[in-house]
Structures are given as C-alpha cells and as structure tokens.
Amino acid sequence: MTTSAQGAVAKVLSNIQVEGGLRGTDIANVVDVSKATVSRWKSGQMRPQPKHELILSDLHYVVGRLQEFYSTDEIRAWLYARHPQLAGERAIDLIHDDRTQEVLAVLERLDSGAYL
C-alpha cells in the first residue's frame, strides 16, 4: 500500500472521529469489523477492503454534511437517533446497510430548510 493511500484512510478516520464525535468502536460497528481492524487502518498497517472503503466514504460524507447544521456531539446523537423521516430507523444502521441515499434525502430536506 502506498503512503498516500495510508494517509488518506487515516485522515478520513480521523475526520469521522473528530468531526462526527464517533469512537473507534462506533466506526467498527458501522463497517462491521473489529475495533482493532479500525486501529490498523488508522495506523496504516492495513488498508480497508473496497466494500469497507465505500462505507467509510459514505459515513465521512454524511458527517461532513451534518457539520453544516450540528455540533460534534449533536452529530453523533443524530446518527444514532431513530428518525421519523427514516421510518423509525437510525441513520447509522442505514449507512451500514448501504442505504446512505435514504439518509442523504433527509439531509437534502434539512438543507432546503425543512425542520427535522
């Protein structure tokens, strides 16, 4: 693995943790790997499989969008809360299940000024 690829994954993980208030355990649960695996990704010892990279990318994007509206603590709470706009499901579970588009639709409504 190249150094730039290692750095990119570590940066994404760091951003998710710092900006989204998520812990290594949270990220591990969303991606469905062990916390140790997330630590190895962050240190550059391993690179995520493509399917895991996609989930991390989606999570990173959603966290970035949520920063426009919420603080770090609120972002974590929002991701874990059940939402009426998501049929009572949690955003974090939808991201895990490759249903990020449903989360993004809610964020688009939030962006357009609808109160959620």
Rank of each mutant, 00 (worst) to 15 (best):
I16G: 00
L94G: 00
K35G: 01
E102N: 13
M1C: 11
A5K: 08
P50S: 12
V62W: 01
T2I: 07
R109M: 12
V33F: 01
T25V: 11
N29G: 08
S71E: 09
H52F: 07
M1L: 12
L54Y: 09
T2H: 09
S112Y: 14
A36R: 14
G88N: 10
G44I: 01
G24D: 06
V31I: 08
H83Y: 12
S39I: 08
I55P: 00
D73S: 10
Y80Q: 15
S4T: 14
I16N: 03
L107R: 05
A5Q: 13
V63S: 05
V106N: 03
E89I: 05
S112E: 14
V18M: 06
T100I: 08
L107G: 03
D98E: 05
T100C: 10
R23D: 00
V38E: 01
R76L: 09
R23P: 01
M1Y: 05
L94H: 03
L66K: 05
L86Q: 06
A87R: 15
P84I: 14
I55E: 03
Q6D: 14
A8S: 13
R90G: 03
T37P: 00
L59A: 11
L22R: 00
A28Q: 03
I75V: 04
E53N: 12
V12K: 09
S43K: 15
A114M: 14
G21H: 04
E68M: 12
E74C: 08
L59Y: 03
A114P: 07
G20Q: 03
V9W: 00
S71I: 02
G7F: 09
G113W: 01
I95R: 00
E74Q: 12
P50Q: 11
K51S: 08
R76C: 08
R90P: 00
K42E: 08
R82V: 11
D26G: 04
S57T: 10
R82G: 11
K35S: 04
R90M: 06
L66V: 06
A81L: 09
L54E: 10
W78M: 07
R90S: 10
N15F: 06
L107Y: 10
L86H: 05
G20L: 00
L56F: 03
K51F: 06
E68T: 14
Y70S: 04
V33G: 01
M46V: 11
S71A: 04
F69A: 10
W41N: 04
D26P: 02
S57M: 07
R90V: 06
L94C: 02
V38H: 02
R82T: 14
H52A: 07
A81G: 09
P50W: 12
G113H: 02
E53W: 12
A77K: 15
G113S: 09
E89K: 12
G7A: 15
H83A: 10
L13M: 06
G24E: 03
Y61Q: 05
Y115M: 15
E19W: 09
E68K: 15
T100Y: 07
Q85P: 10
I92W: 02
S71M: 02
R65C: 13
V106T: 05
W41D: 01
K11M: 08
A77D: 13
S71F: 05
R99D: 01
V31A: 03
T25N: 11
R40L: 06
S4C: 07
A91K: 01
Q6H: 12
T37R: 12
R40I: 08
A77S: 13
R23G: 08
A81W: 10
